[in-house]
């Protein structure tokens, strides 16, 4: 079941197309990475999902029905550019936002106290926001985003401004939310956190969806048949033996006489053939498949779609 389905959505502003026929599906209960270079159209897409702006054409389905204004109660959004009312007290402000998301004052206060206790920030309740540091304000914003237990959470660069300890804590909270049944859309430029957290990704470039799918499938489909062969022996002998079967790249391993060779299998070559030949010429220390990082895929996909 898809919690969110975007069908052929387009949106343009004067002289500028923000989204061009974008489609994607977000399965329920996953962490979905929404990636793309700056200005690709991610924010516009997120605003459409949040019912802030309407698409020029195309449909957005939420939980099986066409997205409507009531659905904002089931969506939580932590924007990249975020702030709070500076002069307002932390507790009062959190209650205000919770009430806008449909919670009663009593319920909001009770849930907020629980969260504040868990984050050990209960003594901030009566402080004004301007007294908080940036990281402290970020924590409050995170709580505000998730307080109404939305089915769909959208985090835009959630880790920016956090120190490693708090970033880790946040990561764990996000995973907990996923385990509790929320679906999470996660937009970031931090590719290592995408690899760590996301099950699915969509890559948007120049207002189009250029790559969409399960992260494992994508990594497998990108530059397949690349291996790293570690061996000890005469490099030139191996090179000349393999030259018809693979393209390669050689690196020496520091503080060791071992050599690492990255090999890309040519068409109609099997790994077995390569191992057989290599085994005759040198001492094989190990051989592993090399999957491209999301970072590599990102750069490769964006560059090829730009051409």
């Amino acid at each position: 079941m898809d919690i969110l389905k975007i069908e052929n959505v387009s949106k343009s502003y004067t002289g500028h197309v923000a989204l061009n026929d974008v489609s994607l599906s977000v399965p329920e209960g996953c962490i979905y990475g929404l990636l793309g270079p700056n200005g690709a159209g991610k924010t516009t897409l997120i605003r459409i999902i949040n019912h802030i702006t309407a698409p020029d054409s195309g449909n957005v389905y939420f939980d099986g029905h066409i997205l409507n204004a009531q659905d904002v109660y089931n969506i939580g959004y932590l924007p990249e550019e975020r702030g709070l009312y500076k002069k307002m007290k932390v507790g009062e402000q959190a209650v205000f936002f919770a009430r806008l998301k449909g919670l009663s004052k009593k319920e909001a206060t009770q849930r907020l106290k629980e969260w504040f206790e868990r984050f050990d920030i209960l003594n901030w309740w009566d402080k004004k926001v301007e007294e908080l540091s940036k990281g402290m304000a970020q924590k409050v914003q995170f709580i505000i985003t998730v307080l109404h237990r939305p089915k769909l959470l959208i985090f835009d660069e959630p880790f920016s401004g956090f120190d490693p300890i708090n970033a880790n804590m946040l990561k764990e909270e996000i995973l907990k939310l996923r385990d509790a049944g929320s679906t999470i859309i996660f937009s970031t430029h931090n590719m290592s956190s995408v690899e760590e957290l996301c099950d699915h990704i969509t890559l948007i470039n120049k207002s189009r969806n250029i790559l969409s799918g399960k992260i494992d499938d994508i990594r497998n489909s990108y530059s397949p048949n690349r291996y790293m062969l570690t061996f000890n022996g005469d490099v030139t002998v191996l090179q000349s033996a393999l030259t018809d079967l693979v393209t390669y790249q050689i690196e020496s391993v520091p503080q060791s006489s071992d050599v690492q060779m990255f090999v890309d299998l040519k068409e109609n070559t099997s790994l077995r053939d390569v191992i057989t030949i290599a085994n005759e010429k040198v001492d094989i220390r190990g051989i592993v498949e090399v999957k491209p990082t999301i970072n590599d895929i990102f750069i490769q996909a964006v560059n090829s779609s730009n051409q």
């Binding site: 949040n50 802030i52 204004a69 904002v72 969506i75 959004y77 932590l78 924007p79 550019e81 975020r82 702030g83 709070l84 009312y85 500076k86 936002f97 806008l100 998301k101 914003q141 505000i144």
Partner: peptide, 17 residues
Amino acid sequence: EEKNNRVLEIVVSSIKP
């Protein structure tokens, strides 16, 4: 102020502009 503060982004995700 709301706009500069970027608090707007959060508010308008819950209420129509």
